[in-house]
Design a protein around this nucleic acid. Sequence first.
DNA 1: TTCTCCTGTTCGTAATTACGAACAACATTA
DNA 2: TAATGTTGTTCGTAATTACGAACAGGAGAA
Lengths: 251, 251
Amino acid sequence: MADHRSTTRVLDILELIARNQDEKMSLANISKRLQAPKSSLYPILQTMVARGYLNYDENSYVYSIGSLCYEIGSRYLDNGALSQHIDQVLEHITSQCQETSHFAELNGNEVFYLNKKDSPQSIRMFSSPGKRLMAYSTALGKSLLSDKSDEELAELYPNGLYAVTEHTITSMDVLKKQLEEVRRTGFSYEVEESNHYIRCIAVPIRVNGRVRYAISVAVPVFRYTQEKEEQIRNLLQEAKESLEQKCVLPR
Amino acid sequence: MADHRSTTRVLDILELIARNQDEKMSLANISKRLQAPKSSLYPILQTMVARGYLNYDENSYVYSIGSLCYEIGSRYLDNGALSQHIDQVLEHITSQCQETSHFAELNGNEVFYLNKKDSPQSIRMFSSPGKRLMAYSTALGKSLLSDKSDEELAELYPNGLYAVTEHTITSMDVLKKQLEEVRRTGFSYEVEESNHYIRCIAVPIRVNGRVRYAISVAVPVFRYTQEKEEQIRNLLQEAKESLEQKCVLPR
DNA sequence: TTCTCCTGTTCGTAATTACGAACAACATTA
DNA sequence: TAATGTTGTTCGTAATTACGAACAGGAGAA
């Protein structure tokens, strides 16, 4: 593993500030949190502010993420014809079933949320673009993992599966059986395994034959009925076919 | 101006790769483009890939923007209650008038695009989140500049206004008169000044009394009518009032 | 094959950065 | 008022990084 100290520092600063937006991020605090001397971080922060990657409020002594991070980050999705259509697809799904829809990819062993469309009757579920969750605990993740061999799964989770909620799958064998079901039926399910009171249904999206993305709909348990499940499966199936048709390009 | 070399390098790399997605970005090419030795960039790139800020395709020798950039960048908008509502507002506008709507802020002397909702009958206009345009050449920019004093304007454009298209305003006096109109009427307009065949209407959004954001609708000239202009003004006015009510928080 | 052109990788020394301590400026607390 | 706790800033030396050259491996052309 490479470790170029200066580079590591720049990236550590970005992550620290981005992931702790509630905390007052002063130079002194960043220094404490990263266990690095103020005098070392000082010129780095100066440069990052001058370049627009960070903002600095002189009154409150707070560093925050700057617009250049947004500009750079936006380019992550520009590849692939898919991202041009995904907004409309999510919107259609959510407008039809009135529940929150998500679009995600696999990142290591985690689900990486790329986009979402909030339900109008939204029970503000804790999810947003850029968020990560252990794949095996979500419907999206099960769709994204459905492609993997037993060996690949073992490599992704060398220490086994830990429980996120009391309903999370913790047995690799159970997971494998569920993934087999996903391959057979085309749908993955989640019953309060990552969020209390939330159930999810998802489908894998294939690009050039390999699973690359997944779409899901999240439903609060008290609104979950057989009719709704049926409706959502149809919407997801429709979305899957539409997207897979539009995009045969590799990333 | 601070210049911490290592930090500068990291940021240069991100910008180079993000802004030249069509070009094959190999180590050798990055070295050439940044005029920095391969051996210096090598450990930096290694670290950035290891941390997920860049992806590297060993077959094509291409570095690209990684998911962590997306994660970090996504946090730029989390501040402020506004961003939670802006999606719905743009969607409402576009669904009513069937034209593309934009949300932006001022960044130096440039318009910085934060969000958009594409028209269903979209004449794919070249615009996307993270893009920048000279403020004086766009309706969004004129709304965002409407707050500025003559002195501030002079500071923002010390070298005057250059023409983006043949319709771009290049006289500071004309710009000032138009900004006066924006203050009086509440709307700003653009007639093919930044994009050929595109006209725009925009409104400023105030947070705590100061102009902070703007919303616009872009219309191809051949679909532009007085009735449509009237409709769009009403939609924008409605959106403005809705957003300003919901958000009195400073950034 | 052989040559060329592309890629990434390694190494020893010169130049740059990192460190800790000391300082200054301001706000809050005693 | 004085004491304490913030904050950012500066400096000289030790440790790290940057540099250019040389090398290695693969692709394609002569």
